[in-house]
Every structure is written in structure tokens, then in C-alpha cells.
Amino acid sequence: MALGKIEKLKIIAFKNADYSDAPSEQETFTAMLNPETYSLDYKVEYQDGQGQGTSSSQQRFSVKKPEEFAFELLLDSSGIIDENPRESIEDDITELRDLLLKYEGEIHEPKHFQVLWGSLLFKGRCTGLNITIKLFNPDGKPIRALCKVTFSGSVEDNLRTAEERNESPDMTHYRLIKSGDTLPMLCYKIYGSSNYYLQVAKVNKLSSFRNISPGDEILFPPIKKNTPVA
């Protein structure tokens, strides 16, 4: 039975955040050897909050952190792996470092990346590159290095808006009151109408809808568009 061709991990660099660069404008780094393992790290952050009129606190959802993706790449110029001996891996290290971390004057930031390997497709920004030199030739030049690469996931803005629906009126919202905030104004922002401020005041056991201060945490419950206004 014929064996299929081994697919190598590829890191593709893009200038556009929506990954719309033409193929001729993309830069690609292909792994010499595929990683033995990779890790995906997911985190969610919560805030301790206590609403008015309550005696206990509970954790409130704050933000879903971008996932982190990490793996190690081997660079080697001894010729043992690719049968192409070279004097050192200094140029390979520079190429990888510049691709991942170099500030691009045209876009005023480092590039965006897609990591492709088999069924894996990860989109994000490079947040770290740690290089450990493992082997030297007799004159002290590095000929083997292990490079740990870390990416932070990103989602294109149009997809992020659809996924999060942060201002949807059919979700429970908690807001920390800032200077200048009023219940009618916040109701308009969340519900699309300022008419629900009395219901919000009642849910939060406020003696008056004006009785809010910076730092207060106010609950805005889910509503339906046809909810009658008191």
C-alpha cells in the first residue's frame, strides 16, 4: 500500500486582519519536522460582583480570553534531517523571528497568521518566540535550535460581532455604573428603548431610578420586544 505524502506544518503570514491577502503577497514558513505535540489553552475570566440589596456575591462573566496555541519547531543545519548541511542556523532563526515578530511599517504592527497542519487551522497573532540552542559546531556556531512559538487566537471583526451579540436584549447584562450613566440611557443602549428604566430599577431594588452611583453593579434582565412598559 502506497504511503501518502507527509504534510508539513505551515505558518502563513498576512498583512490584512481578514486574511484576504493575495497568494503572491503571503509569506510562508514550512516546518522542517512536524511538532511532536501542540497545546491549546482556553480561559474565561469572571468578576466578583454584588448587586444592591443583596448580601452575597457571585462571579459574573467578564470576558472570554483568546485561546492560546503553542508548539515547538526544530531548526537544524547539520544535514542529518534534510541532507542539506549548512554552516549554521543563524539565517533560519532570523527568518523565523522576522516573519513572526517584525514590525511592518505598512500596517504599523506585526502580521496576522494562519497555522495549517492536516485538519488544523488556527488564526491569530504571534505573542511569543522562545529559542533554545541545542547544538553547536566546533567553532561555536549554532547548528540546532528548538523554537517554542505561541499564538493568541483572533476572529475577524464581522465574525466576532455575530458570535458575541454583546448588546442583545434577550441576554442578561451586568453593567458597572460610570460617571454620567443614567438608567434610561443604559436601557436605550441595551434594549433599544429607554422606556424600561423603571423595570430595571425595580429588579435592582432601587428606591429611585436616579439612585445609582459610579461603581454600582446593575442587572439588566432579558426582555422581549413586546414586553409592556409599566
Rank of each mutant, 00 (worst) to 15 (best):
F61K: 04
F69C: 14
Q59P: 15
F220I: 06
Y42H: 11
S119P: 13
P23M: 09
Y103D: 13
D21R: 01
E68A: 11
G124N: 05
F136S: 01
R125A: 01
F69K: 07
A201Q: 03
G128K: 00
E163R: 14
P214L: 12
K8M: 14
E164H: 08
L120P: 00
F71S: 10
Q58L: 13
L40F: 11
K225V: 03
I218D: 08
M171A: 15
G192V: 07
I81M: 05
D21C: 07
I218V: 12
R165T: 07
K10S: 10
P110G: 11
L96S: 00
R210K: 11
A13H: 11
D98G: 07
K202R: 01
T127A: 00
N137L: 10
Q114F: 12
L121M: 14
N130H: 05
Q52I: 14
K205Y: 13
A13P: 09
A162Y: 03
K224D: 14
G51H: 10
Q199F: 05
D82H: 10
E7F: 09
T132H: 07
Y103S: 15
S39R: 14
S193A: 01
P169G: 02
D48L: 12
V200E: 02
L75A: 00
T172A: 03
Y46M: 07
R175G: 03
M171R: 12
L96D: 10
L74S: 09
H108Y: 02
D76A: 01
R160E: 08
L73E: 05
L146P: 02
I177T: 07
T37Y: 12
I212V: 15
V63F: 09
A13F: 01
Y197P: 04
M32T: 13
F69I: 15
S179Y: 08
L146A: 07
N84G: 14
E83M: 08
V149Q: 04
V115T: 03
L33H: 02
T161S: 13
I80V: 15
L75Q: 00
S119Q: 05
A70I: 09
I131P: 05
D18E: 12
P138V: 01
G215R: 09
E36V: 08
P214S: 06
Y19R: 10
K111E: 11
L121Q: 06
R160V: 06
D170S: 15
P222R: 03
M1P: 12
L9R: 13
D139L: 01
E90I: 06
S24T: 02
L120H: 04
I223H: 08
D21P: 01
I177D: 10
S78D: 08
P222M: 10
K178G: 13
K65G: 08
F14G: 02
T37G: 12
P222C: 15
A17S: 02
I223K: 14
I212A: 06
I212W: 09
P184Q: 01
F220T: 00
V203H: 10
N166R: 12
S24Y: 06
Q50G: 13
